[in-house]
Design a protein around this nucleic acid. Structure first.
Length: 131
RNA sequence: AAAGCAGGCCGUUCUGUCGCUGUGGCCUUGUGCCACAGAGGAAAGUCCGGGCAACAUAGGGCAUCCCGCUCAUGAAAGGUGAGGUAUCCGUGAGGGUAUGGUAGCAGAGAAGAGAAUGACUGCCCGCCUUUGCCGAGGCUUCGGUGGGUUAAACCCGCCUUCUCCAAGGCUUUGGCGGGUAAAGGUGAGAAGGUGGGGUAAGGGCCCACCAGUUCUGGUGGCAACACCAGGAGCUGUCUGCCCCGGGAGUUGCAAGACCAAAUAUAUCCUGAGAGCUUCGGCAUACGGCUGCUCGCUGUAUUUUUCCGGCUUGCCCGGAAUGCUCAGGAGGGGUAGGUUGCGAAGAUAAAUGACAGAAAACGGCCAUAGUCAUUGACUACGGCCGUUACAGAACCCGGCUUACAGGCCUGCUUUUUUU
RNA sequence: GGUACCUUGGCCGAGUGGCUAGGCAGCGGUCUGCAAAACCGCGUACGGCGGUUCGAAUCCGCCAGGUACCU
């Protein structure tokens, strides 16, 4: 497939309701430099896995820096998600994932990508055990 | 050339791989393909003003708050441009700040005599008192001398000396009464400044010149205002009240508009219900006692009006109304969604990520050249570093703040050359 | 995104233009066999930069940091 690196809008988590639910009921884990919150649910959504990236305003005052980190996180997810999402594309359950950037400094793309690979493998393990 | 001042402008470029958002088109309706568009001078801070929106609102006055030189511009603005005056900074080009009026009232810590019908020191006058000196004149004494007269004595006069008295003058101690604003030293600020006259001493008290204020006239300017001439002795600083002119309804796109799940419910429609009785009880519903059943026991079991059946009461039937239950319709409205919203435009928020070149600037090193003082400048090359500040969220007009580096125009100062 | 406010010593907190109160904490002393309490004394502050003013914590402007509210 040619279009496996796409990351369009319906793969993003934008519903305010599910975000609130994610904060209250989601399972949290930690993979440097991210804090991750995962919530599997039964409701029908347009994509099997919905993701959202967040950088807290408290650590980065300037909107430019927050945008830069979010873009790098999104890029890292986009290029490494295929091995992860292919496991869940067949099942009818959907998964909501939130990545929160914890580090106080701006990391370059290589270290963010490394952390993203580690985070995705950790999430895979967690979901396998809960099933 | 160097250092600056003012104004304006730009604020990286190219290639490759993989992507994002919106709109339009195409069909093979697929998380498809193609085309086009997609951050700034500050998008920032949210300091002003407006549009837009909702609510409020007869008209007028008072209070409160904001603004305040002139002209132009602008929808308006604590806006912009040009100009005026004062003051401060800079050698200068220039830059900063202030700037409606002042008739009246009030205030100004500490310091200082005093912050405005002033008097501490000082100066001057009058009276009283006190110290010292001078002293017209008078009395007495010594000596000299002239005259009456030749000598002595005596008398008269002059000069000198001594004692005492003394009008008065100068000086001085203290007190009382008055004049004074020149001197003191404080202060941000002390009754315009300098010189002369005048005066007991002084003072715009008078005069000359100068600074300011204000009035009149003239010239220039749209005006603020400037300049010139003449007049008026009119002359402290700051603040508040006050006066004059102009302006201000409140809240903000999380405003507002539309659709609207679940649950509860106003309202409407349809249907059903309100027990039996011999009045002792039975039945039903909800509780209590007991581990449970049985049993015992408590509470509740239906409103009102009208019509007809004999007037009334009981009872029966019908209608309306209220209550309860079931079904249906349904308003407001919550979650949520859509819109408001744009030829950039979302809703955890797009406009990019990575890699490689180029360009600009800076630093270091090496080579060459020029001036030659160990150093400076220029050219080419190598290595390293930097490429800022910062990301639209309803939209405009400003202000302010942040900003690597570069370009253009005008001007200033200093040095050098022609 | 919008709106309203705050910043005074180690901490809390008063201060409407004229020497920055007070309390708690800290340090030293007195008292005590020692400590506590009490008493006496001491040190340390106006978020930063400009402006107005003779004079600014206070008035004005900009910046920094922080808090609350509007879904």
């Amino acid at each position: 497939m040619q279009h496996q690196f796409k990351f369009s809008k319906n793969e993003r988590l934008s519903s305010k309701k599910t975000i609130d639910k994610l904060f209250t009921d989601g399972k949290a884990l930690f993979a440097f430099p991210f804090r991750i919150i995962v919530l599997p649910s039964q409701t029908e959504t347009s994509a099997p896995v919905q993701v959202l990236f967040s950088v807290p305003k408290k650590n980065f005052k300037r909107a430019v820096h927050r945008n830069l980190i979010k873009r790098r996180m999104r890029e890292a997810y986009r290029l490494n998600k295929n091995s992860f999402t292919s496991n869940f594309s067949t099942s009818d359950t959907s998964i909501a994932i939130m990545f929160i950037y914890i580090e106080k400094e701006i990391k370059d793309y290589a270290s963010i990508e490394k952390g993203m690979k580690k985070a995705l493998s950790k999430i895979g393990q967690l979901l396998a055990t809960t099933k």
